[in-house]
Amino acid sequence: MPESNGRQATLKVYRGTKDKGEFQSYKVPVEAGMVVLDAIHYIQQNFDPELAVRWNCKAAKCGSCSAEVNGMPSLMCKSRMDSFKDGEDICVQPIKTFPIIKDLVTDVSWNYEVNKKIKAFSPSPDADWTIYQEDIERVQEFRKCIECFLCQNVCHVLRDHERKDNFMGPRFMVRVAGLEMHPLDEANRMKYLKDEGHIGYCNITKCCTEVCPEDIHITDNAIIPLKERVVDEFYDPLGKFIRGVLGGGKKK
């Protein structure tokens, strides 16, 4: 680490498990360009090698170092230390929505279980694989997702209302949107979205979009278009009648 300019930050880091733990304070020298993950590494190297933290790329691309910094879900590698005021305590907690394993590490495996139930990409066997940019642009935005699960963490339906029994969460609505809007996909996931993923639980308060480190417009470009497609299928008798007469709608 480069020489400190004399500035110090106080980090209050959660240490413990789901049932037992406390916040411990550490004083860390602050350098130009330093991020919270650097400070956590400084603590590991200088004060407490047993501090558990999950990380990998330190470049906001692996989605591993999700945490809550001063109460806001963020990647520790994208939380710059110079964004905090001098003398401000920086509180670092594990994400709330998934159970703590140790310190800042949580068990996010529930997400992989949800993912398994989504019908995979289903092109026609005789599909023409020539794809034009305008047809794939929407889907490309969704492919930026790094699965940091900050959107799942901040979603109040999962976080506060504990609807992990019924609600798939924003991450998987992004995945479904990427499949549904794909020009070559032929599956229909509308019934799944309505009756199993329960897209209706989402009341579009946009917190998922606010915390996304990849700037995916989760609500406007994925969730709302999916909600409108569910409306097409289940809540719009006039539209359904017109489509019945004139034709339209691609999927089985």
Partner: peptide
């Protein structure tokens, strides 16, 4: 068992409460 996953209800994860989280928020703004 919910339709959303193959996990039984008893295996569904719960959000963390105290000691890591106390009160409605940790936000300071």
């Amino acid at each position: 068992q919910s339709q959303l996953t193959d996990l039984p209800e008893s295996k569904l994860p719960q959000s963390n409460a105290v000691p890591a989280y106390e009160g409605p928020t940790s936000r300071k703004d």
